[in-house]
Every structure is written in structure tokens, then in C-alpha cells.
Design a protein around this nucleic acid. Sequence first.
DNA 1: CACATCAATGTAAGCGCTTACATTATCAAT
DNA 2: ATTGATAATGTAAGCGCTTACATTGATGTG
Lengths: 365, 365
Amino acid sequence: MPNPEAIPTLGDVAKMAGVSSATVSRCLNAPDRVVEATRQRVQEAIEALGYTPNFAARVMAAKSTMTIGAIIPTMENAIFARGVQAFQEELHRQGYTLLVASSAYRPDIENEQIRALVARGADGLLLIGHDREAEIYDYLARQKVPALAAWSHSEAGQIPSIGFDNAQAMFSLTQEVIKLGHTKIAMISGVTQGNDRARLRLQGCRDAMEANGLDAAKLPVIEAAYEIEHGAAAFAKLMARSPRPSVVMCGNDVLATGALLCAQRLGLAVPEDVSITGFDDIELARVTNPALTTVHVPHREMGGKAALELVDMVKNKSPGRSAKLPTHITWRQSLGPVGDPVGGPVVGPVAGPVGDSARPASEAS
Amino acid sequence: MPNPEAIPTLGDVAKMAGVSSATVSRCLNAPDRVVEATRQRVQEAIEALGYTPNFAARVMAAKSTMTIGAIIPTMENAIFARGVQAFQEELHRQGYTLLVASSAYRPDIENEQIRALVARGADGLLLIGHDREAEIYDYLARQKVPALAAWSHSEAGQIPSIGFDNAQAMFSLTQEVIKLGHTKIAMISGVTQGNDRARLRLQGCRDAMEANGLDAAKLPVIEAAYEIEHGAAAFAKLMARSPRPSVVMCGNDVLATGALLCAQRLGLAVPEDVSITGFDDIELARVTNPALTTVHVPHREMGGKAALELVDMVKNKSPGRSAKLPTHITWRQSLGPVGDPVGGPVVGPVAGPVGDSARPASEAS
DNA sequence: CACATCAATGTAAGCGCTTACATTATCAAT
DNA sequence: ATTGATAATGTAAGCGCTTACATTGATGTG
């Protein structure tokens, strides 16, 4: 009997069961390659000893961890929550474990986390967006760790991506805004530095303006980190401008929620005095008052698809195929026609008592 | 020159730099034990080769990963987001990497994830609450992996905990509810099975009723998973009862938000027709209309403290000390006096335009 | 100048597992 | 019984790193 204080090893089990360590290993990894009686004896020894395999050793010897890593910019708000949850569920179904790290939107930390996850043996990585130093892609390539980008679709990226067209989606939404008569548009954008999603959304908005004969260069833009209070502060600044914008398009629902809260504080009615739009369609968007008209992103579908694709890349050494998922506008109450008289009817289709609705016609991408 | 296709190892670096592998290892782990000139030569070789240490090998040899694991019930909503973020920030400051896994509130998955993280070499684990099979605590003890519980304080737990007194907090809130004249209380509780936080919150509510001469056995309780729609469904059922409750206390802010949404659908004014309370004080609670009166939990403080304590346990093999953090009630607009006439003034203190306020007097625990 | 001292480096033994290959047992067919 | 094929198990060589211990060489001392 080995020292009961020590953690038992394969060898201890083998000794106790009276077999070789190879046989024990086989019991664990290929049970059908060992005869019933032996397997049982080994099983008993395992239980008696309370043995659990040492993972590091297994990894060293076998070079596969059945672990996928994901580095997301933040866990603080729900932007990535649903997608990651779906990703994890599909991974679990495929027999993989997901480990998540977050970068606080800081490239240096993301870098660190990527290395940490790779070092810890992640068989594959899920990254958000495409913007990062070339060095990291080199590193991943050298380490032969497949990576997949999500939340942003681009055929031009260094790695395949499962996502949607951020620019296109924002283009469509802006189109609708303009159709409602707005010309004094302003935008609260996410921080575009190192964030292709934010940059593309801004771009989409500008493109739609130009496409409709508005001068995109004159679009007032404030960049704000994705926090409610920052959205509120930016909104306050925008409202102080003259002429006052009739609509504030926000880089995501968190910023839009902040804007809404600020409008409330300022005594501005939404959408009568000013319209506000979001992006992402997270839970928050349904809950605010008025509820947010926003771009719906197929979070769960994206997560699930990304999992399948990444597993394929890992298992079959496939190069990975990108996919572009459709988004659509979810109409709620925060966007109305310009100059709507106070209390006037909300235009834009509304369904049901706390109505969400999607106009098939306004399908983006 | 070794095969350029292969991932370089310590040995490759050593060969290139013309030193032994031990020296290279020392350059990495104890730079001051090797002379400047050598160190530089090694550094160059490392860069030329693009070498990165193999973590599994390092773990096997050194038995420390500078990694902490956390298993949280869910990432889908923000209940744990802020706390975990703070936990991670402090960990990062201490030189540790945090890896997060989620269990979807399922004990079997939590079990799996705990093993996965331990197997992958986590030096310590953060768990939520105390409710889990004894077997897991045994496993942790055998593997000598220190674990700390959060979001729930209990001196009686198998592992130390950094948290707050869920029962006490709910007791205080219920006390206030009763003080406002409510006797027809109902509760939408989280699923209490395997969730000590939910159970204690329910208990706290019952205790306060008894303490005020109300029959806790008559408290209508519906258990619901922490999702907005489930909260809404439970609320609808509660509202169909006769007599109709004058206040619905919810196990957390997510459920309360669902309740609020449902009230809106039913055309019930909150708090005039029915009051609603939350728990946790996550962002959601500030954003709903009316905003939620809820129990404020010191998420960031809890996360930071937990990180410090867990690092101490890991580094110094300390047994760990528990800590109970104070909570307080955050007063907003969803709780009012019973039978308030429609449109009547909101009682209960309110501060500022979108006022949050905490009454020092109602400090819980 | 011989020798002790100490800093810098090298040697080599693991860490716990997987797996290619070698060996032995089993059993049906002759 | 003998043989050959095949199934079951054992042997042992790594996987890439850390580290106790051994070796070397420089420096200072009596």
C-alpha cells in the first residue's frame, strides 16, 4: 500500500490490481481492449484508491486535452453571455470542456490570456472579432492551435469567422432611421480602437447616410466604453449640441440603455423628443422603458455553429469555414418618426402587449 | 537546427544557446541565478526559435500552475458577472490566471467542471454557495486543492466562505415590506434544490413573517429558474390567486424583472397595485420601470476579498478564513405601501431623479 | 601557492501518463 | 497434440520540464 497521504497514480492502481500500468491506462481510454474480469479488478482498485488521472501527464503523453478556450472581452454585461452559453452547450455535447477568460477589452490582457489558455493545453480557441496584432496569429500558427473568430464575419480575416456583418446590419438600421425622416443623426459608438465590430457599426451608419444623401462627415460621434453610465454621459453631451439630434444611434444596447436613462433624467420623452436605437438585442433591450429598437443578433445560433466548426477544425485539422449569419431589426418603442407630436402614435410596427417584432422586409445581410 | 515544423522545446533553445537545459530553465524561472551574458544568449535563442514553454510539462515537473478556477452557475445573466470580474482583477494583480466554467445550475455538470479544472491543474477553486455532495469535498481534499465558497456566508460549511447572510438580508427586506403594511405577501423563489442561497432567502422571508405575527406556512411560493420569462410566468400565477398578494418578493432581480414585465402586460401598476422586490442589485434593477427596490450585494468587494483569501490559501497553505460582508436595501420605486391609491405619492425614501438610496437604518446583517 | 569558498553551470532523475512493440495466453482447426 | 491466428497483457521509451546534486572555475586567504 502506497503512502495514503500521497495522491495515487496509475502505477499504484496497477500494483493493487496486479496488472501493468498499460492495462490500467487502457481500461481508462479503450475499455474494450481489455477483458471484462481485468477491467473489473482495475475498476475496484481505482475506487479503493480514489484514483483520478493526472491531467498534465496525460496531456504530455497524449497531446490532446478535450478543452476549448474562449477569450471574451467582458463578462460584466450580457453581450457575450448567451452566445458563449450556447457555445459551451454544444461543446459539452461534443465531449469538450470550455474554459473562459476575459480581457476587459485590453489587447495586452487578451494576449496574455491567449497564451495562458494555449499553454494550458487548449485544443482550440474562440476569439471575438478580428482585430489583434499579427504576432498573435503567428503564435497560434506556430503552436498549431486552431482559432475561430466570432461576433464578426469577415472573409479577409487571418482566421475563419462565424459571425454577422456588423456594417451591413447597422446600414440597414440607419436606413430605417432615415426612412422615418431623421436627418439629425448622432451616434454613441463603442471604442473603435482594436474593436472591428465597433468600427464596422460606425462605418455602416456613415455608409447609409451617404447612400441617402446625408453628409457622413458631419455625423456627431462620441466613443464610449460599453457601460451604462458612459452611454448616459455621452448622451448628455450629444443633447447639449445644437442643433439637437433627433435620433441617437448607439453601438450596443448597453450604451443605448444609458442613453435612455439619461433622457429620462433630462425629462426628454423617447421617442417623441428623441429616438434611441441599440444593437445586439440582449435582454436589457426588452426591459427598458421604452423598450429598445435594436439589431437582433442570433447569439445562440452563432455560439452553436462556432462550437461545431471549431470542433471540426480541432478534430479533423480542417482549415475551418466562415459563415455569415443573418441579423434583423427588432422593432420596439425607442425609435419613432422625427418630430412626432408628444403622445402621438408610435409608428413602426409594434406587435403584442410588450411587442417585439421583426419586419421581414428589413432583414439585414 | 531542429525541424522548423516542430514546436521548439527547452532542449532546442539550450542547444542553440550552447548551454544546458537546466540553464535555460533557470533563465525562465530564476533569472538572477544565471549570469547576464548567458541570459542574453538564451534570450536570443528563445526569440529566434519562437519558443514558449510547454505548460503541461512545467506543471508535471513543478506542480503549480498559477491558475485559479471558478465554477459559476451561469453566465447567462449578470448575477455573478461583477463579482467574478472583480475576482479576476485581483487575481491578475496577484499574478494568477482565472479560468471560468459554468454549470447551468446542474450539480452533475458542476461536478464535472470541478474535476475538469482540478485535472487541468487549478491551484485553487472558487465555488458558489455550499450545497454540493460530500463526495466532491472529499475529492478536493484528496487532491489537496483548496476551495473557497462565495455568495453565501456560513461558518458551518465544509470550506471557508466569503459572502453575505442571505437569510438575514431577506429578513430585513421582508421586515420593511411588512412595515409598509403588507400582509398578503407572496414569493417567487429561485429553485431551492441544491441552492443554499435561494433556500436561505426564502427562509429569511418566512422568519420575518413569523417574527411579525404572520403565518409563514401560508406564504404562497413559486419556485422558478432564474430567467425573466420564468419570473413573469410565476407572477401571472400568483396574481391569479385570491386574495391577490399585495407584494411579490422575488429571489433575485432577474425574477423580479420578469414579474415587472408581467405586471405591465396585465395592466397592473407597480407599486400602486402590487409591489415587487428583487435581490442582488444587478444593473437590471436600475433599468426597469419602475426601478427595483432590492437587496444590494457588495459584488466587487466580495470578489476582491475572495481572490485575496484564496490566493492566501494556495500560497501559504492557510486553511482560509470566512468573512461575512454587509448587505443593505437599495430603495427605488417598485416597493410601496399597501393599498396606495393609484397615482399617490411613493412612500419609502427616494433620492435624486432616478433615485437610488440606502437607508443606513435598514442595514442588513 | 595550496586551498576553501562560492557563484555559474551541467548532469540526470524523475513527474504520471500513453502507446508502439514484444510477449504470452487462448482457442479453433487440423 | 500441434499449429497459427488472434486477443490480452506487459515492457519500456518517451512527452518537456524542474531541480537536487555534482562539477567547474574564479576569487580571495593565509
